[in-house]
Design a protein around this nucleic acid. Structure first.
Length: 831
RNA sequence: GGGCGGGUGGCGAAACUGGCAAACGCACUGGACUUAGGAUCCAGCGCCGCAAGGCUUGGGGGUUCGAGUCCCCCCCCGCCCACCA
């Protein structure tokens, strides 16, 4: 038995990886006259070693990139490292190792594993965000955005992570009060910080979603909700002896039904308006609310609690006085921190009113159907639009029209206006951390915050790091860094010691790949014209409202700077599912169910691992790791391997003989061409690699049943083998190269399969000439007949009626109707 | 509470515009080859039934000659958001 008879991935994979590299097979820009495709996967944060989730994203993207290259496109498929961030710094606190050192090591490990998996990256374009060569452009963008007023310094409440001891964005708070990265409790703290005015782009970012037809709908919906536009009106309620109370409402049409107003416990007017006899009770309530965590107070279905302040406010529309309450469910941060309550038309208000015996007044009736009973008899709030009643001059108007007119009235009379509220907050990006991009600002006693001029960038992160995770930011503890001179007047000054959120790094890296070593600008706008937008972006859905919103924002900023020209950074988004452990639970040390790519490649080879990942399910679905399935896919590749070696006698067969193929071998040719079609379709539209691979398996199964003898038969087998190797290339590229070279021999010596053309199918062979037609009687399957594709109803009906089983079911019945679907079925409806 | 996905054999999954449900793989069963088989090849494999036949895509109803697919009601699971006025 020769060595070649056993499938040994270890002996073939490194060889082809070397050949690809030597040939520069995956360099972008090799086909300047061809159409471009930009395939991007979210770059990894290089913590420890690669895990299976990484294996999945890059395998999905790589299959697509390899396919597109074979289709003749000029493909850009880059990779880099999201190298700055908290985990490296937290680890440094534990063991004292410098984040840079650790990160470098991790990158080396990651790069090694990625190469072993055979990913077709253009490694010449590799970037790391921790290089000054990269982050200097973060600083450059910062300065440009500061000039344009997109960056501002704000003094405000911020989320303060008690674990990281750093400010984090609203968008990074999870579970109400947990840090997204370290899961420590988050508290509110007043702190000065730098922020991007992403809210100024809210409308654009919302409108842009309509262009993202190739994004999963659930992602665009999540962004829509996150941006959270609500159109409404701000209305002033007068309180004697106090400033007017501003309330925000989306339902100003219901304001004649307002029977009380409610303030957040933290509302600044609370102290002022509370009457002396109510004071003690109000204070007790406010204190209690302060002590309760936000999560408890606003948690699911918590009791709605409130207390009367003793004050009254005047509804400006009808002059009615309504009581002023405070309650736990009103959020100080949202809107104006005060709401008008219309119990008849808001369920929450309804429940509150019932609990505290406040009046309920119906002012909107359903446009059709039964009228609502009076407030006291109401069973639940009627919250839909309808027709106004008992609403002064607006009575009988529809809700929508009433809202417009009533807001206009408020503006005309000066007690309010139509407004828009957004859920989206500005993106605070100051971090009291070391391992990030220094914010290029100098504080001068005379000139205040002065941006570092462009020609003095980058502000390099000092190598010396004092990382304790406590007290002042690490950079504040490095005097050589802190002490500088003012760029404007030259006098002694102090540098900003905060660094940027690492979401800044990932907001524009896709553009840096276009000219990764450019030292005059963040990237070459000419290259951007060729390559942007990204055609397919692959990554996890957990980034739906952070990274994926930030990079859309940044793209728009870059457009304002004249660097890019489209509205959106990326055309199609593919969100891949999780790889769970064999037990179906999320992989975790805690469960001891972690499987990593490295050992799997050692054991089965990269091709088997890749095939498993792609075959288990379509990309979007979660999959469970399965040792048995992996074994099965290894066996499949070994089976393919043996097939080629058992059919070496066919390698020399000539295509000229193909036309003579008949019988089983004509069937084989048909199957070959159908497989090409099926496999091609698995890359177009929705990615469905699992069915493409299944088609290859069917072709292999068919080949195992055939013993070619004549020339034409050998030619048909050779045709199938060549197609099989070629179609396998995006999924299992190493074994595909090996077998392709074996079957083609000298003809392919200097070439690479990775560079070869994707096969075309012959439509004449894909179209069958006879088909199996199902025969039903009253919708139930009673037999099947073979008929020519072109067979008409009469012909098929005659064939069907000749079938014994069909005859039995038709016996003694009258055929009332015959339904005929060409090429598919015939259905006798009998009575 | 809201939004978005899902629910198909023992398991992972297929099924184009409504047209033979379960392709392909795993597991399992039988056979062949073999000193041996945890290798390989061949065959079987939704459920009930000896069979003829009947039943089957979370449950119930509907539209249709025909429904996994369309419509209505309900149940369950996952993810995201959440007292958003």
């Amino acid at each position: 038995m020769s060595m070649n008879d056993r499938y040994e991935p270890k002996s073939i994979e490194p060889r082809w990886q070397r050949r690809w590299e030597e040939a520069g097979a995956f360099r972008a820009g090799r086909r300047p006259s061809a159409q471009k495709r930009y395939v991007l996967e979210m770059f990894p944060y290089p913590s420890g070693a690669m895990h299976m989730g990484h294996g999945r994203v890059y395998t999905i993207g790589d299959a697509l990139a390899r396919y597109l290259r074979m289709r003749g496109f000029d493909v850009l498929h880059p990779i880099g490292f999201d190298a700055l961030g908290l985990p490296a710094e937290n680890a440094a606190i534990k063991d004292g190792r410098h984040p840079a050192e650790r990160t470098r090591e991790n990158i080396v490990a990651f790069r090694g594993e990625m190469k072993r998996l055979g990913y077709s990256f253009d490694w010449d374009r590799e970037i790391s965000t921790c290089d000054a060569e990269y982050y200097r452009w973060n600083q450059w963008f910062f300065v440009k955005m500061l000039e344009r007023g997109i960056v501002h310094r704000r003094e405000g409440k911020a989320n303060w992570c008690t674990g990281c001891e750093t400010v984090i964005a609203n968008e990074q708070v999870v579970d109400g009060d947990r840090c997204e990265r370290c899961e420590s409790p988050v508290v509110q703290k007043v702190i000065p910080e730098w922020a991007f005015k992403i809210t100024a782009f809210a409308q654009e970012l919302l409108d842009g979603l309509d262009q993202l037809g190739e994004w999963p709908e659930r992602i665009t919906t999540m962004q829509r909700n996150w941006i959270g536009k609500s159109v409404g009106a701000e209305v002033d309620f007068a309180i004697p002896g106090a400033p007017p109370l501003k309330v925000f409402t989306t339902r100003v049409d219901t304001i004649f039904g307002c029977t009380y107003v409610v303030l957040a416990p933290e509302h600044p007017l609370v102290e002022q308006v509370t009457t002396s006899e109510r004071r003690a009770e109000v204070r007790a309530f406010v204190d209690r609310m302060r002590k309760t965590d936000a999560i408890d107070r606003m948690g699911e279905n918590g009791p709605k609690e409130g207390v009367f302040t003793g004050a009254h406010a005047v509804n400006p529309y009808d002059g009615q006085k309504v009581p002023v309450w405070i309650a736990n469910f009103v959020l100080a941060e949202y809107g104006t921190g005060a709401v008008m309550s219309v119990p008849a038309h808001d369920q929450r208000d309804f429940e509150f009113a019932r609990k505290y015996g406040l009046p309920i007044r119906v002012v909107v009736q359903p446009a059709k159907g039964e009228k609502l009973p009076a407030g006291d008899a109401l069973e639940r709030a009627f919250t839909e639009d309808g027709v106004l009643e008992a609403s002064g001059p607006w009575t009988a108007l529809g809700s929508a029209q009433a809202r417009d007119r009533m807001a206009a009235e408020a503006a005309a009379k000066g007690f309010g206006e139509a407004t828009v509220r957004w859920h989206l907050r500005d993106w605070g990006f100051s971090r009291q951390r070391y391992w990030g991009t220094p914010i290029p600002i100098v504080y001068c006693p005379e000139h205040g915050a002065v941006p570092v001029p462009e020609d003095q960038l980058p502000v390099v992160l000092p190598e010396k790091a004092v990382i304790t995770g406590k007290g002042e930011p690490p950079l504040a503890k490095v005097p050589e860094f802190v002490n500088t001179t003012c760029p404007r007047c030259g006098k002694p000054a102090r540098r900003e010691v905060e660094t940027m959120d690492t979401f800044v790094d990932s907001s524009w890296y896709y553009a840096r790949y276009l000219s990764p070593h450019d030292d005059r600008r963040p990237f070459d706008p000419e290259a951007a014209r060729r390559w942007l937008p990204v055609d397919t972006y692959v990554g996890g859905p957990e980034h739906a409202v952070m990274h994926l919103l930030y990079f859309r924002f940044w793209h728009r900023v870059m457009r304002r700077l004249g660097l890019v020209h489209e509205d959106e950074p990326c055309r199609r988004l593919v969100t891949q599912g999780i790889v769970n452990g064999p037990d179906g639970r999320k992989m975790s040390k805690r469960w001891g169910n972690v499987v990593t790519p490295g050992p799997m490649v050692d054991r089965y080879g990269a091709d088997t691992l890749r095939l498993f990942i792609l075959f288990a399910a379509p990309p979007e679905k979660d999959i469970d790791w399965s040792d048995e399935q992996v074994e099965g896919l290894f066996r499949f590749l070994a089976r393919v391997w043996r097939l080629f070696h058992a059919r070496q006698d066919c390698f020399q067969a000539r295509d000229a003989a193909l036309a003579e193929a008949a019988g089983d071998f004509l069937e084989l040719r048909r199957r070959t061409h159908r497989t090409i079609k099926k496999c091609t379709e698995s890359f177009e539209g929705e990615l469905k690699f699992n069915t493409g691979i299944a088609a290859l398996m069917e072709l292999v199964n068919a080949l195992y049943g055939l013993e070619p003898k004549a020339d034409a038969e050998r030619a048909a087998v050779r045709e199938a083998l060549v197609a099989l190797a070629t179609l396998l290339a995006p999924f299992a590229p190493h074994v595909a190269e090996e077998l392709w070279h074996e079957v083609l021999g000298a003809a392919a010596r200097e070439r690479l399969l990775s560079d070869a053309a994707w096969p075309a199918f012959d439509p004449a062979l894909v179209a069958a000439d006879t088909v199996t037609i199902a025969v039903q009687v009253n919708g139930k399957l009673r037999g099947e007949v073979q008929a020519p594709v072109s067979a008409g109803e009469a012909e098929v009906r005659a064939l069907a009626e000749a079938e014994e089983r069909v005859k039995a079911h038709l016996a003694g019945k009258t055929v009332r109707k015959v339904v005929f679907v060409p090429r598919r079925l015939v259905n006798f409806v009998v009575g």
